[in-house]
Computed example of a mutant assay.
Amino acid sequence: MTRLVDIRVDAAGLPPADADTEQERRVAIFDLLEANSFVPLDPAGAPLPGDGFRLVLSRSEGRLWFDIADAEGQPLVRQHLSMDALRQVAKDYRQICDSYHDAVHSLPPARIETIDTARREIHTEGARLVQHRLAGRVTLDLATARRLFTLICAIQAGT
């Protein structure tokens, strides 16, 4: 199985992050590295060779850039993902996460469950959007797309 073996976020294009945002990013990267299926594709749509890839995420020009290298660090391809497409679903996800965290401390279990269900649905919507936007350039399963969406939200949190 082809997978990510290293992920870094280039903070140069991001505003300074607070400690909570930095922790969110670290946790998202850890989770993504623990289990993922990530297959970068060449311009013809064929899988790039290798069994492990390194990923550097950076932001510029309203885009999230994916600099993909092989396991040894040799650059292979640079892809981008428009943040415009993800902005609303990431905002909705952040808001429902905030509501969920507030609810845990003050609402009855049934109401918490309702908010959590909505949170999971928005998270899946974001993951499917990531898959769709990367189609033809990177192949990833839904579980990986969910983890990548979480990382994208953590990157967005500082902006």
Rank of each mutant, 00 (worst) to 15 (best):
S60M: 06
A28F: 04
P75N: 10
T117S: 06
A157P: 09
A17D: 07
A46H: 07
L14K: 10
L41V: 04
A12C: 07
A85Y: 12
D92L: 08
P47T: 03
P109A: 05
L33K: 00
D84V: 14
I115L: 05
G50K: 00
D6Y: 08
F149C: 08
P43S: 09
I112R: 05
A44P: 13
L14A: 13
A110E: 13
E24S: 04
Q95E: 05
V77R: 04
E121N: 11
A154M: 12
P108F: 03
G126S: 09
E121S: 13
R94C: 12
R87A: 14
Y100A: 08
L148E: 15
S82H: 02
A69C: 15
L4N: 05
L148K: 07
T21C: 06
E113L: 14
L148S: 09
F30M: 06
P108M: 12
Q74C: 10
R63I: 12
A90E: 09
D42S: 07
L48Y: 00
Q23S: 05
A157W: 00
E72K: 06
G73P: 15
D67M: 06
Q88A: 11
D141H: 01
E22S: 04
D42C: 05
A110G: 04
V138H: 08
G52E: 06
Q88I: 09
H105N: 15
C153H: 01
G136I: 13
V56Y: 06
R146C: 15
V104S: 14
P75A: 11
G136N: 14
H132F: 06
A90G: 13
D84F: 15
R3E: 13
L107W: 05
T114R: 07
G126D: 12
T117C: 15
E34T: 04
Q79E: 13
H80N: 12
L55D: 01
A85P: 14
E61R: 07
L151R: 02
F53K: 03
L76E: 08
I68L: 05
Q131N: 11
V9Y: 05
R147G: 10
I122N: 03
C97D: 15
P47Q: 01
R120Y: 10
D92H: 12
V27L: 03
R26T: 04
L140P: 11
A118N: 11
V130K: 00
P109K: 02
L134T: 15
H80L: 10
L148V: 15
H132S: 12
S82F: 00
D20A: 11
F53G: 02
Q74S: 11
R119S: 01
L33H: 00
M83K: 13
S60F: 10
L33D: 01
Q88D: 13
T117W: 03
A145E: 03
R26N: 00
A28S: 04
D70M: 03
G126K: 02
R26H: 01
L134D: 07
H123M: 08
F30L: 02
S60N: 08
V77Y: 01
